[in-house]
C-alpha cells in the first residue's frame, strides 16, 4: 500500500488553505458575489438570432425601444444574446424585446424571458443563506452524535473552508451566482462531508484498534487506507461532471463548474483540513475509548 506522509506535510497544506481562504474572503468582501437574477430581482431576456448580430446594433435597437437601463451580452454561441433590463417590467416583456430587435428585419427568436420581483429576490437570498447555515448546523449535530464533538468541529471547519473558497472563486472570477449554483454549493457540502466522514470513520476505527498514542501515525495510516477510495470516487464524480460541463449546455455551465471546483476542494479538505483539524483541537484516544466496549464486537472477524 502507498504510504504518503500526509500529516508531515500538513503545515504546507495549512499555508495553502489559509492563503486560499484569505484570497476568497478578500474577493467576497471587496468584489462580492455577482448575484444572479434569482437573488437580485430584475428582468432578463434571452434571444437567438439567425445570424450573429453586432452587439452595438442590438444596443441601438433597444435604446430606440426605450427600455431604460439595460445590458447586452452574448450567451454561449455568438448568435445567442442575453439582455438584462432593470425592473422595467411590463406585460410580455420578452415579446416586446423581440419585437424591438426584429424591427430591423432580423430573424429573432425568443428563447426565454424571466422576471423576478426584487422582494422575491431578497427573500430568496435570506432564505438561501439561512438554508446553508442550517445545513451546516444539522450536519455538525449529526457528526457530534455519531462521533464526538471534536470531529464535528473538524467537519464544520472543513466544510466552511470549502464553501468560503468556492464562493470566493465565484466572486473572484465574477461568475453569475444563481439558484442552480446555490444548489451546487449545497451538493458540495454533502459531497465533501461524505468524504470527510469516510476518513473520520477510518480514523475512529484505527484509534480504537491500535494501542499507540501516536495520532499522527494513526491519521496517516487512515488517510492512506482510504486514499485509493477517495481518488476513485472523486475520479468518477469528476468524470461525469466534466461530461456535464462540456456537454450539458450553458444553463448548467456554472452549476457544473461549481461542483468541479467543489469536488476538488472537498477531496483536499477531507484529507488535510478535516483530519488535521483533529490534531489542532487535540483529539485524544480517551475521547473515543468510552465507546469502545459496545463497539468492540466490530473488531472481531466473525
Amino acid at each position: 500500500m502507498t504510504q504518503i506522509d500526509f500529516m508531515g506535510k500538513r503545515r504546507i497544506a495549512y499555508a495553502v488553505s489559509i492563503i486560499l481562504a484569505v484570497v476568497a474572503l478578500g474577493a467576497l468582501t471587496f468584489k462580492g458575489l455577482n448575484l444572479g437574477l434569482d437573488f437580485t430581482g430584475g428582468t432578463q431576456v434571452e434571444v437567438r438570432y439567425q445570424n450573429a448580430p453586432q452587439l452595438d446594433q442590438v444596443r441601438e435597437r433597444l435604446e430606440e425601444g426605450d427600455f431604460g437601463n439595460f445590458s447586452v451580452q452574448t450567451f454561449g454561441a455568438n448568435t445567442d444574446i442575453l439582455v438584462r433590463l432593470q425592473q422595467s417590467f411590463d406585460e410580455g416583456v420578452g415579446t416586446q424585446v423581440v419585437d424591438a430587435l426584429r424591427s430591423a428585419g432580423n430573424s429573432v427568436e425568443l428563447v426565454r424571458a424571466e422576471y423576478v420581483g426584487a422582494q422575491v429576490g431578497d427573500q430568496l437570498r435570506d432564505q438561501s443563506g439561512l438554508g446553508m447555515l442550517i445545513a451546516l448546523g444539522v450536519v455538525a449535530l449529526y457528526v457530534a452524535f455519531r462521533f464526538q464533538y471534536k470531529f464535528a468541529l473538524g467537519a464544520l471547519i472543513s466544510l466552511g473552508h470549502d464553501v468560503v473558497i468556492l464562493l470566493g472563486f465565484f466572486a473572484l472570477l465574477g461568475l453569475d451566482f444563481d439558484l442552480t449554483v446555490l444548489a451546487a454549493v449545497l451538493a458540495v457540502i454533502g459531497y465533501s462531508l461524505n468524504d470527510t466522514i469516510i476518513v473520520y470513520d477510518r480514523i475512529r476505527e484505527n484509534i480504537r484498534r491500535s494501542q499507540s498514542n501516536d495520532l499522527v501515525k494513526i491519521f496517516n495510516e487512515a488517510i492512506n487506507q482510504t486514499l485509493s477510495r477517495t481518488l476513485s470516487t472523486s475520479g468518477t464524480t469528476l468524470l461525469v461532471l466534466l461530461a456535464l460541463f462540456f456537454l450539458g449546455g450553458d444553463m448548467i455551465h456554472n452549476f457544473s463548474l461549481a461542483l468541479i471546483v467543489g469536488v476538488v476542494l472537498g477531496t483536499f479538505s477531507s484529507i488535510y483540513v478535516a483530519a488535521a483539524m483533529l490534531l489542532l483541537v487535540h483529539l485524544e484516544r480517551e475521547d473515543l475509548i468510552p465507546a469502545q466496549k459496545e463497539n468492540a464486537v466490530d473488531d472481531e472477524a466473525p
Partner: peptide
C-alpha cells in the same frame, strides 16, 4: 400581482 415570470421557448 406578478412577482415573478419565466418564459422558456
Amino acid at each position: 400581482y406578478f412577482a415573478q415570470e419565466r418564459t422558456i421557448g
